[in-house]
Simulated assay, not measured.
Amino acid sequence: MLSAKSAETIRATLPAVGGAIAEISSVFYDKLFAAHPELLRDLFNRGNQANGTQQQALAGAIAAFATALVENPDTPPETMLNRIAHKHASLGIARDQYYVVHTHLFAAISEVLGEAVTDDVAAAWSEVYWLLADSLSSIEDRLYAESDHPGTWRDYRVVGRYAETDDAITLLARPADGLPVPSRLPGQYVSVQVELPDGARQIRQYSLTGTRTDAVEFTVKNARGTPDGEVSGHLHRHVTEGDLLQLSAPFGDVTLDEGDGPVLLASAGIGCTPMIGMLGHLASTDSPRQVVAVHADRSERTHARRAEFDQLVTKLPNATGHVWYEAPEAEHPGDRTGLVDLSTLNIPEGTTAYLCGPLPFLRALRAQLLDRGVPADDIRYEVFGPDMWLAR
């Protein structure tokens, strides 16, 4: 809990710091990477740095945590903390790295705010930072202790590569050391580290899609944008059967709850991957739960794991599947053309909803679910890349 003196200072300075936090984040990363270029090369996502989303996410997370400390001091933002801690654990973040971040973050705060950063202001915001860092470190230490994965990184050999669509492939990999595959929960992801032509060792996360106990399986979309995805492009162009990949233990806070209550699994685009993992788990355990599976895509041709979606829904005794295509390439129901409309579906009382897809899709479906009476606490989502929504 924030001390009374610091809480008063944070409350007074939050508007000024909050208004400048985006600039502070940008200056912070400039200073961090100037002092430690290896972090940009081998740890941080260079694409997210280039397009600015990582800076925005950091700014939002700091502002959200500080706001929570002064407005709801007895209720820590557990969802935000767990989301960040799982991502950090998948990267192998260590406690001593928080000291490095503190040095450059507070240098950035001083540079941007200048004389406004008095000793009391610096002390108060330092207290906020260390409360955040200690909270994250505690969760990360627990995650490391609970993992049955030998170390941060482990060599896996690719034993299968399968084309899903024109821009999506599925990779199947087994531990090269012959030891068991680590336990995982439906909905979790692994980090994949690859060495790029310039020597950088970049890392990305991919949701686990299979239920096999002797291998891990994940689907990779070849990301196109500004810039194009470095790791996804490398995996598409260069990785074949027999190659070695370095993978982390499974992590991720958005996992399918055990129980017998109804669930809604809704995805768009490559957001289908954690939902395929959840559907696969339900089917492999002969779950009697009511399941409403929803997917949105541009067309049949771009829908990765389409046949498996149908097969898994069919295996479940109390499941229904619903697919919307924006531009169907074959005969397709008119009421399933365009954007997802949950008002046409039966959503059982007591449903827990799991969502994954682009931010506009998540916002639209969350609004529809709230209109249908689904409590906000029962709506969970996974987003690929920096979480621009959660940090607000």
Rank of each mutant, 00 (worst) to 15 (best):
G60S: 10
R301P: 00
R336Q: 15
E146P: 04
N45D: 08
A89I: 00
S284K: 10
A215L: 11
A68P: 02
E349N: 09
D214F: 01
P227S: 11
P76M: 12
A22H: 09
A168I: 14
D377W: 01
A307S: 15
V112A: 10
E140A: 07
V112L: 08
E349W: 03
S6T: 05
T240M: 08
H36G: 10
T344F: 01
V101T: 07
S25I: 02
I62G: 04
G373I: 00
E195M: 04
M1H: 10
E127V: 05
V340N: 04
G321Y: 07
D198K: 11
N318Y: 00
P288E: 05
W125P: 02
V294P: 06
P227L: 09
Q54L: 12
V220F: 07
Y129D: 13
G269I: 00
R41C: 02
A66S: 13
R372P: 00
A123V: 04
L81T: 04
R289D: 06
T13Q: 09
G225Q: 08
P348S: 03
P73R: 13
E78D: 13
G199P: 05
D120M: 11
Y129F: 14
E382V: 07
Q311W: 02
D243A: 14
D134N: 15
V100D: 03
L69R: 06
I109C: 03
L279C: 11
T302A: 15
V374Y: 03
K221C: 00
S137K: 02
G92V: 07
L390H: 03
P77C: 11
A163C: 05
T314A: 15
